[in-house]
Design a protein around this nucleic acid. Structure first.
Length: 224
DNA sequence: TAGGCCATCTGGTCCT
DNA sequence: AGGACCAGATGGCCTA
């Protein structure tokens, strides 16, 4: 996982296509999207199912917050399992509080589902291999790859602008772009893109992926 | 079997 | 008061 944090923009695409296999990150190939989601039986930490069933379909998840028949038994099981840490659970809750807790749980589940939907949307726009044979990106991998993808796009945009400015100058034309180069997100100082040529070999991971040092890698930018 | 990743529950905190 | 957000705890599933 650490390699993702310093992954250069140049290396992004190469790594993203083989990421799952190379990094050994889980999910996707075997479980499939729905199985990976696993929005099913409630977790053992909370509303315990009587039987440790495998993750159930989403429909069952919604009902998990509405258990009523065995909820007191389940509550007792939780209380015993949690041991001394659950001082507040020593006394049995009134049904009203229990109902409130269940609604809070359901709300939290919905919130996490929304978060996962957003992550799925992010995965969909990250150019990595979207095939059944490639594992689904983990949450952390999705975020790190997205970050590096943004950096890579910013670098490409900046280099394109430099090229346009160079061409304009070489043709004796006015070069408004060169006069006031736009900086993506106003962070030009953070992305010294043109510095790559002067950099030495990266002492860390990025060179292993890109084959060349990158200005986006903090290790490449470190002073010797 | 250990480790990674995940869903879920839960209690606390902050905001409206 | 109710909802959103967060972090800790817990246990299941999967892979190496």
């Amino acid at each position: 996982m650490a390699e993702l944090k310093s992954l250069s923009g140049d290396a992004y695409l190469a790594l993203s296509h083989g990421y799952a296999a190379a990094a050994g990150l889980a999910y996707g190939a075997v479980r499939g999207p729905e199985a990976a989601r696993g929005y099913g039986a409630p977790g053992p930490g909370g509303d315990l199912p009587a039987v440790p069933a495998p993750r159930a379909p989403a429909a069952a998840a919604e009902s998990s917050g509405e258990q009523s028949g065995d909820e007191d038994d389940a509550f007792e099981q939780r209380r015993r399992r949690r041991g001394p840490g659950a001082a507040a659970d020593v006394r049995r809750r009134p049904r009203e509080q229990r109902s409130l807790r269940l609604s809070i749980n359901a709300r939290e589940r919905r919130r996490m589902h929304d978060l996962n939907d957003a992550l799925d949307g992010l995965r969909a726009v990250i150019p990595y291999a979207h095939s059944p044979s490639v594992r689904k990106l983990s949450k952390i991998a999705t975020l790190l790859l997205a970050k590096n993808y943004i950096l890579m796009q910013a670098q490409a945009l900046d280099e394109m602008r430099r090229l346009v400015a160079y061409l304009n100058q070489s043709q004796g034309l006015a070069a408004p772009v060169a006069a006031a180069p736009l900086t993506p997100f106003g962070q030009a100082a953070v992305y010294p893109f043109s510095a790559s040529a002067t950099l030495g070999p990266c002492p860390d991971k990025c060179a292993a992926f890109s084959g060349s040092p990158s200005a986006l890698c903090k290790h490449c930018n470190e002073k010797p």
